[in-house]
Amino acid sequence: MPHERRARLALLVLALLALSAILAFMTLGARGNWGFVLPFRGKKLLGLLLVGHAVACSTVLFQTVTANRILTPAIMGFDSLFVLCSTVLMALFGSTMVAGLDPRLVFAGNVLLMVGASMALYLWLFGGEERSLHRLLLIGVVFGIFLRMLAEFVQRMLDPNEFMVLSDMLFASFGTIPATLLGIASAMVAGVTLWLMPRLSRLDVIALGRPVAVNLGIRWRAEVLAVLAAVSVLVAVSAALVGPVLFFGLIAASLAHLAVGQSAHRYLLPAASLIGVTMLVGGQTVLERVFAFNTALGIIVEFAGGITFIALLIGKGRR
């Protein structure tokens, strides 16, 4: 079938793009000892790969379970939820205890809290009466602001010392990816990805929307909540590594739809992931090596993403 060939071709091109971005990132401007440069850049690369893959996949999955092309977990407040979870954990147990613990353990606890909280959020947003898309979006955006404000408020209530510990954890950015978490983050992302593999065709059915999917025998609530748990883990990983990024997933997912031109998850998910990786690694390479910026990637992504989102909203109204 011609469109399947097109999708495969698109994947090939995207893979080549991602590969060249990775090569450029690892080699451009490297001086001196390769034994030092490779592991140093390799760690950074791993972080960017994890984030690119996690954000892109979580966005595609979220759009699948909400039968939608505009909603993303970040826009619906899931990233802010992670920040709030970390803050609350800190407020409850105090920095002395948290700082004494292995950061990986704290992270795992955060993820667990996050999975529970995000399911509650999802059920609240999507479980009840059907709402119009714009209302849903506005609710999500404002709720995200509320969560962020609440996190900020709780942070202000903390002891300034505790706040310092927390801010090291929370204000991670593309320039300063915490290396201690790379191991556990890789394991989580790999686990979720492996879990997704055999479910790709079921995801295609879920993307048809609830009535059709239930008709075809999908156990809607259980399946969707399971996918959502996967989304939460991915969101938590990316938020812990680089902090909240509001619009990046939206760009990656929208481009993936454009690139493969159809909705089968076996093409869509890899495409989104490759685009996410290319954008992050390529963007960071250009910023670091060409413009000598360090932490501005997040800001640029927000800027471009916000414009994309407005364009999507306007375009959608037009049709």
Binding site: H3, Q63, S201, R202, V205, A207, L208, L216, Q262, S263
Partner: peptide, 21 residues
């Protein structure tokens, strides 16, 4: 339908309860 599918693919989903994909 949010998903972008061909007619044959859509009809094919009717077989999902039998084939599981």
């Amino acid at each position: 339908l949010v998903a972008r599918l061909t007619v044959r693919e859509l009809v094919g989903f009717g077989r999902f309860p039998h084939s599981g994909g």
